[in-house]
């Protein structure tokens, strides 16, 4: 089976890149193919890169509190490209925001302190489309 391809991304102005780099290495060590597009991306550039690179899943790392604004925009930008690539959001995501993010089309959320296995499993599950099937 081909390796799962994941695009990890930072959208907006949030420069905290410790988490995204740690997660990128965790996923790489777990056998996934990881693409990182760097800081200060917009929902449009992330969606375009994800579609161009034909990834199986997008992982957004968000620590500045802008996830409620930007994560749904990434989902919309991906869907606007007629793509159903699932979007997983991780970082400082308070529990009370999770339901709204899932309703906005985010496949799964990973909160602060999520252990490595949970991060890897959540990304793999999302890549296989299992969150979507549950949601439908």
């Amino acid at each position: 089976m081909a390796a799962i391809r994941v695009l990890v991304a930072k959208v907006g102005l949030d420069g905290h890149d410790r988490g995204v780099k740690v997660v990128a290495r965790l996923l790489r060590d777990a056998g996934l193919e990881v693409i990182y597009t760097g800081l200060f991306q917009t929902p449009e550039t992330v969606a375009a890169a994800a579609v161009d690179e034909d990834v199986d899943v997008i992982g957004l790392s968000m620590l500045s509190g802008a996830h409620m604004t930007l994560a749904p925009l990434v989902v919309q930008a991906v869907r606007a490209r007629n793509s159903d690539i699932p979007v997983v959001v991780g970082g400082i995501i308070p529990n009370q925001d999770v339901t709204e993010l899932l309703e906005a089309g985010v496949a799964a959320c990973l909160g602060p302190g999520a252990p490595a296995e949970e991060v890897v499993q959540t990304v793999i599950t999302a890549a296989r489309g299992e969150h979507r099937r549950q949601a439908v």
Binding site: G12, L13, D14, F40, T42, S64, G65, A66, M68, T69, L70
Partner: peptide
């Protein structure tokens, strides 16, 4: 806030969702 830290005004498109947040 992040826009100020990056030298952007609050009405900059990149500032969306970040104004006054951090």
């Amino acid at each position: 806030d992040m826009p100020t830290l990056l030298g952007l005004d609050s009405d900059d498109p990149m500032a969306l969702g970040e104004v006054g947040r951090c």
